[in-house]
């Protein structure tokens, strides 16, 4: 009895957090999403995702998020493998280098990218010194993809790193003893065992990539539009709270349908492997 009470006391901050910062805001958004400005019930706001302009932005955002997530994965695995080879103290060193930048506000880091990529920026300055032609990637989708990938890379790398570092050295050594090469150890042992980390990385990178309106605005020069920019416009410029909420809810519903499918499957695979 007492231990139960103790449990309640300990979970109180968590309950307060979930109610205050998850459930109540979600309820407010849902209420806006399914009503019109006069308070009448309507599905128009949620279905607005299907119209031509919003739908186009949604598809473009899906593509951008897919590319960014893929780039994050492709960058994360070689880096994680490199850290795994090194001894512990230097891996802590590298992690600090990865995490340290995250302590600086992300808008500042994106503004730094703007300085690097702009037509007369740092990158072109170096290219000129090396006698190479300038590249013009400021204010394009490429710049947005670079910015988003950079921004969310740590969220992909850290869970993968955690999963990979939990794999005992004995297991990989056993694989080698049984004749697996470096590639074989990776594809048949490390990669399958790191899947839970990969999937939690994807959930943390994919959705935010679709809605990084600040990155699209700064690095895309206002010429690129993610679905996040549209939602931002509905709230901040048009004062269309209902439509903005409706679009957010339909985005959330889409993610709730698609993501658990992938994440859930990874859980099962993990289970069967343990047996």
């Amino acid at each position: 009895m007492t231990s139960e009470k103790k449990g309640w006391g300990l979970s109180f901050p968590f309950i307060l957090w979930s109610v205050g910062f998850t459930l109540i805001p979600l309820a407010v958004i849902t209420r806006y999403a399914f009503t019109d400005p006069d308070g009448g019930l309507t599905l128009d706001n949620v279905l607005a995702m299907g119209n031509r302009i919003n739908g186009q932005a949604f598809l473009v955002s899906l593509l951008v998020a897919f590319i960014c997530t893929l780039l994050c994965v492709l960058l994360a695995y070689p880096m994680v493998m490199a850290i795994r080879r090194l001894n512990l103290s230097s891996s802590a060193f590298i992690l600090i280098f990865l995490i340290l930048p995250m302590w600086m506000n992300f808008i500042l880091r994106i503004l730094a990218w703007q300085m690097i990529l702009s037509d007369n920026g740092i990158l072109n300055h170096f290219l000129t010194i090396l006698g190479l032609p300038k590249v013009f990637i400021a204010n394009t989708w490429l710049a947005v993809i670079i910015g988003v990938t950079y921004d969310y890379f740590p969220y992909m790398m850290l869970p993968i790193y955690t999963a990979v570092s939990a794999i005992e050295k004995d297991i990989t050594e056993a694989a080698r003893d049984l004749g697996a090469g470096t590639l074989g150890v990776f594809t048949r042992v490390i990669f399958p065992l790191s899947l839970p980390g990969l999937f939690s990385g994807i959930t943390m990178v994919f959705v935010p990539s679709m809605t990084s309106f600040a990155v699209a605005d700064i690095l895309g020069g206002g010429k690129t539009q993610l679905i996040g920019n549209i939602i931002e416009q509905e709230f901040m410029r048009s004062s269309e709270m209902n439509l903005g909420s409706g679009l957010s809810i339909s985005l959330m519903i889409f993610m709730l349908i698609t993501l658990p499918v992938t994440v859930g499957r990874s859980g099962k695979e993990e289970g069967s492997r343990d047996i």
Partner: peptide, 10 residues
């Protein structure tokens, strides 16, 4: 205007 603006940006 809001709709046109979104169209222009997209």
């Amino acid at each position: 205007y809001n709709e046109l603006w979104k169209e222009l940006k997209s």
